[in-house]
């Protein structure tokens, strides 16, 4: 029994899940209908659905970020890429004669995503070919990217009136919010591609030791290009959802601080920033923890702008719980418990 408990406690997903459950419990106490999901006009409604829908952009970016972090990298530019992607899509829609036409929307979305992909390849180029530290390579695009987004929108907030585009942010598909469906598809694609093939293992090997994996025949450079491109692509998709939700592209505020939320989700999920082993399931839990936290702050009646203090508390708590110092303390405790059970058994035997 003790052994099972200890194994559970030392699992990487233990603390994040505990945190999520605590948050849900607080919500249920403060707001008994929290877990209720109702069907109105064939669409699902409820707090849980809201959490899933509002958390989808963060989750989508966090999935890309997980793979980048697994290669011992980081991508700070995702917020800027999201802003650029939204700005491109909106300016194409505004420039067209018929923004309500699904074909126009498809063109806008595809162009926005291709541009995001190009930005990701640029990040990958700086990191893998030129060999700049990832945090700095992506800092360049983070700084310049918002400027580029403003260049595209010419400093204006572009408001679009396009029904099919709006569907991306606030529509429903088979009763489920479209944003949630997109998030689930991206999560599933990433999980299948990396965990059902050797790709995930190769990514981890690059994160643990790039030089050794290169000598073992792993094409580290191609892998780095791929993860940064994928991360930027997911940022582009998240940017489209965010923009569609507001039906406006705001170069300054679309995806502001979303890179921090995404990194936070990954870290809360137990993926180490030092690269190597990663957990997409952990990232999912992490993204849910963050979004539930935001919702909890609303339902409990604390002014929503104070959310950041709670985020700080959560980051600190999770980091301290996952730190090697704490783990060593736990290991010591485990040894002491094991020694005690051994003594008890001995005493019983004699």
């Amino acid at each position: 029994m003790n052994a099972l408990l200890l194994r559970t406690v030392s699992s990487r997903l233990f603390w994040p899940i505990v945190m999520l459950l605590v948050l849900v419990l607080i919500n249920v106490i403060a707001f008994p209908d929290f877990l209720t999901v109702t069907v109105k006009d064939g669409h699902l409604f409820g707090s849980i659905i809201d959490i899933l829908r509002n958390g989808a952009p963060t989750l989508i970016i966090a999935v890309g970020m997980t793979l980048v972090i697994a290669t011992r990298g980081i991508d700070l530019s995702v917020g800027a890429v999201a802003a650029i992607s939204g700005a491109v899509a909106c300016s194409i829609l505004l420039g067209s004669s018929d923004p309500g036409n699904p074909g126009t929307v498809a063109v806008a979305v595809i162009v926005a995503l291709v541009i995001s992909l190009v930005l990701g390849v640029w990040n990958g180029f700086l990191v893998s070919v030129i060999g700049i530290q990832p945090i700095i390579a992506t800092l360049i695009l983070m700084t310049a990217g918002r400027g580029v987004a403003m260049l595209i929108t010419e400093g204006q907030i572009l408001t679009v009136n396009s029904a099919p585009f709006k569907e991306l942010g606030s529509g429903f598909w088979l009763g489920i919010p479209v944003a949630v469906v997109i998030g689930a598809v991206i999560f599933a694609v990433a999980a299948l591609l990396t965990r059902r093939t050797a790709l995930g293992m190769l990514i981890e090997s690059v994160g643990i030791n790039p030089e050794a994996s290169r000598q073992a025949g792993v094409r580290a450079r191609v892998l780095l290009f791929t993860v940064y491109a994928f991360c930027a692509l997911s940022a582009g998709i998240a940017g489209l959802i965010l923009t569609a939700n507001q039906t406006a592209a705001d170069a300054n505020n679309t995806g502001l601080f979303i890179e921090l939320d995404a990194i936070l989700a990954v870290v809360i999920g137990g993926t180490s920033l030092a690269g190597g082993r990663y957990s997409l399931a952990g990232t999912l839990v992490g993204a849910l923890v963050i979004q539930t936290l935001v919702t909890t702050v609303y339902t409990v009646g604390i002014p929503p702008i104070v959310t950041m203090v709670f985020k700080a508390a959560v980051v600190t708590a999770v980091c301290l719980l996952q730190s090697p110092t704490t783990n060593a303390a736990f290991a010591q405790l485990r040894q002491r418990l094991a020694a005690r059970t051994a003594r008890v058994k001995e005493a019983a035997a004699s």
């Binding site: 980081i74 945090i135 921090l260 990194i263 936070l264 870290v267 920033l273 030092a274 002014p303 702008i305 104070v306 959310t307 950041m308 203090v309 709670f310 985020k311 700080a312 508390a313 980051v315 600190t316 980091c319 301290l320 730190s323 090697p324 110092t325 704490t326």
Partner: peptide, 29 residues
């Protein structure tokens, strides 16, 4: 936090950033 708990500087200072920014709003919005 960085030295004793071996938290990466990036994350530790990120937490401090959230804390400071949040406290600003606690004082006044």
């Amino acid at each position: 936090m960085i030295h004793v708990f071996k938290v990466q500087p990036f994350i530790a200072t990120l937490a401090a950033m959230f804390l400071a920014r949040g406290l600003c709003y606690v004082i006044s919005k």
